[in-house]
């Protein structure tokens, strides 16, 4: 993972800025994991759903939009929210290619004030707060999605 960040960063910093490089690298990593989640979610939807949709005359596009995707979201959400939390932590790696994220700013502050433990502790707390907040939001979304459905 990290070498991927470095990979994009070191090649690209010459032409485009570090933010885009970090975004591309993290996006590539995230898309690889997310595609796995989606594949397993697609596999969990029985063929009968497609056949039923075909039988009532839905086009492939409508089948996807009205029948498959609503179920897919419910199946994929736990995996995606997990990935979101992992991605949140992985963003700290962009500080290595010179982006001014939490870790980098903390490093600067620590070097200036010589209070490294305090500042890195605060950085860890910030990440924890972000994780707690996003897990609240994610579980709210999950509750919202699962409320509207029947028992599987």
């Amino acid at each position: 993972m990290q070498q991927l960040t470095r990979l994009a960063g070191s090649e690209v910093t010459i032409e485009i800025n570090a933010f885009v490089a970090g975004m591309i690298a993290l996006g590539a990593v995230f898309s690889a994991y997310a595609s796995e989640v989606f594949v397993s979610a697609f596999r969990a939807i029985p063929r009968g759903q497609y056949e039923g949709a075909y039988a009532i005359g839905l086009s492939p596009w409508l089948t996807m939009r009205l029948v498959i995707l609503p179920q897919l979201i419910r199946l994929a959400l736990p995996g995606l929210s997990n990935l979101w939390l992992i991605l949140l932590k992985e963003t700290s790696l962009v500080s290595v290619i010179g982006l001014a994220d939490i870790v980098r700013q903390t490093g600067i502050a620590a070097r200036v004030t010589k209070e490294a433990f305090l500042f890195f502790g605060i950085a860890c707390l910030l990440y924890l707060i972000l994780a707690v907040l996003s897990s609240f939001v994610l579980s709210a979304i999950e509750r919202r999605v699962s409320l509207s459905g029947a028992v599987r």
């Binding site: 992985e90 790696l93 870790v103 903390t106 860890c124 994780a131």
Partner: peptide, 11 residues
């Protein structure tokens, strides 16, 4: 589990 490994290592 909630903080990045990088931040822990720096800490």
């Amino acid at each position: 589990r909630g903080t990045p490994l990088l931040a822990q290592t720096f800490l």
